[in-house]
């Protein structure tokens, strides 16, 4: 019983939140890795693209809520998601046409692309703050919990409950669906294979008659969709804060590199590695150990390896370890000079 309680505790505070967070990071990292694979640069504007798409979702959610269009118990934001994705796609394609295409034609150095993406980041960040403001926004509705801790305790007879938030289940369900759709696209469709071919060998793709502009366009469309979904799920799960999207860039980049740059499977693995490390290293194991130890005993301290203040440091540590031990990432990614 004690062991079951300990496991329930761990499930409630580590497994469930880390899985949801991992899915959000994985979706973000997929977008970054896709742009890395196709356009070959580190896209610093990705976080703000997530923010922009999410903002569009929030605005449309408010409109729907105002009209009384809701899909209880699911969050209304799911209904608004396609609109947000569309906005993000239009934004991405416009940006590509106005900004990135010029450097692509010039075959500019990846680092120039990265700096240009900083400029794009500024513009997106400014637009978001002008339109929706710099403050937190809440837009989650629908049922809050699938199962509350109390219900779980009554059901299982354990002293520890596992609460599962509705947003966590939505996150995981949507992430699984999106990832499955994306892999189906990449593995089975002609356009998807063309994207992989282009990412693998640009020159040969040209010789095969694959249109680079089309490949890039599809890459942006998918990236914008992934970014909007990732940002919306993250904001539903926690809260929408415009400034968080610059911070979240770090774990997303870490997940991308850990998984292997340009590797979609790696990005997903990387997302979960980073999320689980973050949650596990910042969780206080006091109660968990108390269950496992002799009855009546409890550790004196919190048994927390790192204060939660340092959760972003975890991604960095993982990043450094990967750079030192296996610079190509879990799945051997490409090394673009």
């Amino acid at each position: 019983m004690e062991i079951l309680n300990a496991l329930a505790l761990l499930a409630n505070f580590v497994v469930v939140p880390a899985t949801a967070y991992g899915a959000q990071l994985a979706l973000g990292a997929l977008g970054v890795t896709l742009i890395f694979g196709i356009l070959r640069f580190a896209n610093f504007s990705h976080g703000e693209l997530m923010s922009f798409g999410t903002m569009a979702v929030i605005l449309f959610t408010w409109v729907l809520q105002g009209q009384g269009v809701i899909i209880h118990p699911l969050p209304t934001a799911l209904l608004a998601l396609p609109v947000g994705i569309l906005v993000a796609i239009v934004l991405s394609l416009t940006t590509d046409r106005l900004v990135f295409r010029f450097y692509r034609r010039k075959r500019a150095n990846p680092i120039i692309f990265a700096i240009v993406s900083v400029g794009v980041m500024f513009v997106y960040a400014g637009l978001v703050r002008i339109v929706i403001g710099p403050d937190d926004q809440s837009f989650a509705d629908g049922a809050r919990f699938i199962i509350t801790a109390r219900e779980f305790k009554e059901l299982s007879g354990l002293a520890e409950g596992i609460a599962i938030k509705q947003t966590q289940v939505v996150t995981i369900a949507v992430a699984v669906a999106v990832v499955a759709a994306m892999f189906w696209f990449l593995q089975k469709t002609r356009s998807g294979k063309a994207m992989r071919a282009y990412s693998d060998n640009e020159d040969l793709a040209l010789l095969s008659g694959i249109d680079p502009d089309r490949v890039v366009m599809i890459a942006w469309i998918i990236t914008a969709a992934l970014a909007t979904i990732a940002g919306t799920l993250y904001s539903l799960d926690k809260i929408y804060k415009p400034f968080i999207f610059l911070q979240i860039l770090l774990p997303i980049f870490a997940a991308t590199i850990v998984g292997g740059i340009g590797q979609p499977v790696g990005a997903i693995l990387g997302g979960f590695v980073v999320a689980y490390s973050e949650v596990m290293l910042t969780y206080a194991y006091k109660k968990f150990l108390a269950y496992l130890g002799p009855s009546g005993w409890a550790p004196d301290s919190l048994v927390q390896l790192l204060s939660t203040d340092y959760k972003f440091a975890v991604s960095f540590i993982i990043l450094v370890v990967v750079l030192l031990v296996r610079p190509t990432g879990i799945i051997r990614g490409k090394v673009i000079g």
Binding site: R190, K193, A194, R196, A197, D200, N201, S208, G209, I210
Partner: peptide, 17 residues
Amino acid sequence: VFVSLTVEENLEMGAFI
């Protein structure tokens, strides 16, 4: 060749147009 694609996918990509 496209090293990360299968042989068949390589041929398919050859016929892309």
